[in-house]
Design a protein around this nucleic acid. Structure first.
Length: 502
DNA sequence: GAATCACTAAACATGC
DNA sequence: TGCATGTTTAGTGATT
């Protein structure tokens, strides 16, 4: 393939991914960050120094490591026969999965499931998941059984021709599954005839969410295949012992199609987004700060802004989400009939009322709860982690690893600090900028300014975002994190998301 | 092999 | 009375 075409395909491919990200998470910090970087003068390609760069093919890969990482021997040994066969089968079955009428067969696990297309395949979701999806898609978060039937029928045509026993199963599931409960007729906002309105028990919603995320079918199969290149590629992640970051919207192998279930996917996607959007937000803030510092139009102190920002992050008033999104590692506790409550709450649950949203399960505290200032002790503690070169020594929390491996939401830790939620984060970012502009250094030497910029770069790098200017601190971080040596690879700058896994 | 879970089927009760 | 809904029990198959 001609090099030009290769580059074009790379560019278009990556652009598709960016578009996908933007569409999946419109207005997200990541999108904004990408856009912000895109606006940078030197950033002709917004992805060239991000994780997306890993989507490039091997055209620039040195040859010396071919023997170690090439999987040609697998092909030679025909060991990939089954895999290839699976791909062929996938293509074949994607066209149309034909089965004998009346023969309900669960959708094959290797084929991306399309309920509108694979009408002869039994949906790969359990009834509890189906009910959960129906309820979550409902504006009022509560539905009568009849409407649950209807939702399932409309979204999963398979059931249109299925024996009526599935309705019994739905009712059975509603009755037995503790995740669902009836709404008091008094509190039901709508009048229905017989029967009750059903809703999701908020205490069990995390369980259901987790169960949904663990479903093996997702709409971004192809995208994720691109985002997770085969180990045959000699990428820098492997060279330096780093784990490539999942590119795609942390879609995990269990995302819900945004096309089929827009509301639900948005909810689930938001929890995905929460994974590292905070650090992306920090990055965005830093980009702003850096640009602003660079222009020297304003002499505000990045360090002061950083102090404020980290002060926010360290605020003792920060409220840890009370409802664990990661409920359990035990699959059996996802949404079974017999699970114990995550957090017992005898208060009556009113679906559709404030607090019923998945977002509302977390008490992020109001903006008033967040102090713009923080104690001197906290600042001193912060200073301990600021390197001489101005970069910040960040600790990646243990839960970060969970994110990488599980795709679940969680927290980033900055020396134990818990990251914030989008809502408060947005307002905090605005306030951070305001505060940073408000707090200015009386005198800032050129050296200090340089340190400020480097500090910003360090945090940007930690967020997986590299600006055009090459940065020595980057190398230092990599070295510190990896092997402690003073050497660094020549092309380390292409390892843009390295810090996420270090 | 036991335990657990999801699913299915059936019977029965209840309410409109 | 018929039907939809809700509850309960029992059985089966898959998975761990």
């Amino acid at each position: 393939m001609p090099c030009r075409s290769l580059e074009e395909s790379d560019a278009s491919m990556r652009q598709r991914l960016v578009n996908s990200l933007s569409q999946s998470f419109p207005g997200s910090a990541l999108s904004k960050a990408l856009q912000c970087i895109n606006d940078e003068e030197d950033m002709k390609d917004p992805l060239s120094s991000s994780c997306f760069a890993e989507l490039r093919l091997d055209k620039e890969v040195p040859d010396e490591d071919d023997e170690l990482t090439s999987l040609a021997w697998l092909q030679d040994s025909n060991l990939l026969k089954d895999i290839n066969a699976g791909e062929d089968e996938e293509m074949k079955e994607n066209d149309d999965i034909k089965m004998e009428p009346g023969y309900a067969q669960t959708h094959p696990s290797h084929v991306p499931y399309n309920p509108q297309k694979h009408i002869n395949s039994k949906p790969p979701y359990s009834f509890s998941c189906l009910i959960f999806m129906a309820l979550e898609e409902s504006p009022t978060k509560m539905l009568p059984v009849k409407d649950i039937y209807q939702w399932i029928l409309s979204h999963f045509p398979y059931f249109q021709n299925a024996p009526t026993g599935w309705k019994n199963s739905v009712r059975h599931n509603l009755s037995l599954n503790k995740c669902f409960k009836k709404v008091d007729k008094d509190r039901g906002h709508q009048t229905i005839g017989k029967g009750s309105l059903w809703c999701v028990d908020p205490d069990y919603r995390p369980n259901l969410l987790q169960a949904l995320r663990k479903t093996p079918y997702h709409p971004y199969h192809q995208l994720q295949m691109l985002a997770n290149p085969q180990p045959s590629q000699n990428n820098h992640y492997q060279l330096y012992g780093l784990k490539p970051q999942p590119l795609a919207p942390r879609l995990g192998p269990n995302s819900i199609s945004p096309h089929l279930f827009p509301f639900l996917s948005r909810r689930l996607g938001q929890s995905h987004l929460d994974i590292d959007s905070d650090i992306k937000d920090v990055a965005q803030t830093l980009v702003s700060l850096k640009t602003w510092s660079k222009a020297k139009a304003d002499n505000a102190s990045f360090a002061e802004g950083l102090k404020i920002k980290l002060g926010d992050m360290k605020s003792p008033k920060r409220v840890i989400p009370k409802g664990p999104v990661i409920c359990t590692d035990n699959p059996s506790e996802d949404h079974t009939y017999s699970i114990t409550r995550v957090e017992a709450d005898e208060d009556e649950y009113i679906p559709g009322s404030p607090g019923s949203s998945i977002d509302d399960e977390y008490d992020f505290g109001s903006d008033d709860d967040i102090d713009d200032d923080f104690s001197e002790d906290e600042y001193d503690d912060l200073k301990k982690h600021v390197r001489k070169d101005g970069s910040l020594e960040l600790k990646r929390g243990r839960k970060r690893d969970n994110l990488d491996s599980e795709g679940e939401s969680g927290v980033d830790e900055v020396d134990g600090c818990i990251s914030d939620n989008n809502n408060t984060r947005t307002s905090k970012r605005a306030r951070l900028l305001e505060n940073a502009k408000r707090h200015r250094f009386e005198e800032t030497s050129e050296e200090e300014k340089k340190k400020i910029e480097e500090g910003a770069d360090a945090l940007l790098n930690l967020a997986g975002i590299c600006l055009s200017r090459q940065h020595t601190f980057n190398r230092e971080i990599v070295n510190e994190k990896l092997d402690g040596t003073k050497e660094y690879p020549e092309d380390i700058d292409s390892v843009s998301e390295c810090s996420s896994s270090s």
